[in-house]
């Protein structure tokens, strides 16, 4: 394993043309964790949303009033829970009859104003809405080097266009398949998105619900890149989004529900970090601190090489 993972810039500080208080370069590893130079430690993104009706109950119970207060939620992600990144999921666009793309741009602006952290934006999932939503999001974050998502094989042009127009990076998602991941990266490049502006999302299934496939696909994507496949040499993001709605969490006894939720997210996110992911995303605030400590520990190793 000799090649390096491409570095992707996320977030822009004042000197870089944005307003973030920090920015990151994700990637840079030349080996998997524990097998050589694994680059900078993985970043932890806390997910928040603009329409809590579609959010896991166990998180809503934890965040309380913040659920309706995007600024407060984003601020708390940084100041109270210590996330590295905020990931804004525009759940409002998932509602039937959604027709207000301007509100998506506003939500992005609101979060950017509330926190100095770099931002990942998860836009619409309906091709009919994509163009409007992505343009507004891109525009609202111009200069801030958002990580804008999600591009898929069937619908990547709107995201790509918005990213190119406003200087953002793109999340490229494919369902748990190394070849599909590679193809999408090639498609994006042909559209004009350079490789150092793509982050691979190999679609992470929840622990116990497809995670075995996801884990191996992450390892395969990483080992292929490190063996020289340039079309897979982008950083990987892992977001096991269904983690908090799995049966084990829903049916946990009242007094254990929060802890079960946190552990369920933790085990999947930490495993993704071991598999070489550069960004891991979680939804429960309680998972962030635990993950941060564990990742610091994972990066604090002395090998024998």
């Amino acid at each position: 394993m000799t090649e390096r993972i491409t570095e992707v810039a996320v977030g822009a500080t004042r000197t870089e043309g944005g307003t973030r208080t920090r920015s990151y370069r994700v990637g840079g590893a030349s080996a998997l964790p524990g097998m050589g130079d694994a680059g900078a430690r993985p970043l932890i993104a806390l997910e928040i949303c603009d329409d809590p009706a579609l959010w896991p109950v166990v998180v809503l119970e934890e965040v309380g009033d913040l659920a309706g207060d995007l600024s407060g939620w984003a601020k708390a992600a940084e100041e109270r829970w210590g996330a590295d990144l905020v990931r804004l999921v525009l759940t409002s666009t998932r509602r039937r009859g959604f027709d207000d793309p301007a509100s998506s741009g506003k939500a992005v602006g609101e979060v950017l104003a509330a926190t100095g952290l770099p931002l990942i934006v998860e836009g619409s999932i309906d091709p009919a809405l994509d163009t409007g939503v992505f343009r507004r999001c891109g525009e609202a974050g111009e200069g801030e080097r958002l990580l804008l998502g999600t591009a898929e094989a069937e619908r990547y042009r709107s995201v790509a266009a918005a990213a190119l127009a406003y200087g953002h990076a793109v999340l490229a998602q494919t369902p748990i398949d190394i070849n599909l991941a590679k193809q999408l990266n090639i498609l994006l490049r042909e559209t004009g998105v350079p490789h150092d502006r793509i982050v691979i999302d190999p679609y992470t299934g929840a622990l116990g619900y497809g995670f075995e496939y996801s884990y191996s696909v992450m390892e395969r994507v990483r080992t292929a890149a490190l063996a020289g496949d340039a079309d897979l040499a982008m950083p990987v993001i892992s977001a096991a989004q269904d983690s908090l709605t799995v049966r084990e969490v829903r049916e946990a006894p009242e007094g254990e529900r929060v802890e079960t939720a946190v552990q369920w997210e933790f085990y999947a996110a930490f495993s993704a970090a071991v598999a070489g992911a550069g960004i891991v995303c979680v939804r429960h605030p309680g998972t962030v601190g635990m993950l941060r400590e564990a990742i610091a520990d994972l990066w604090g190793g002395e090998g024998w090489r």
């Binding site: 964790p33 524990g34 520990d297 994972l298 190793g301 002395e302 090998g303 024998w304």
Partner: peptide
Amino acid sequence: APRTVGDFVARASHLRE
């Protein structure tokens, strides 16, 4: 004899390899 999780992962990987 790891002192951190990172130690274990690094050493275990070395040994397995």
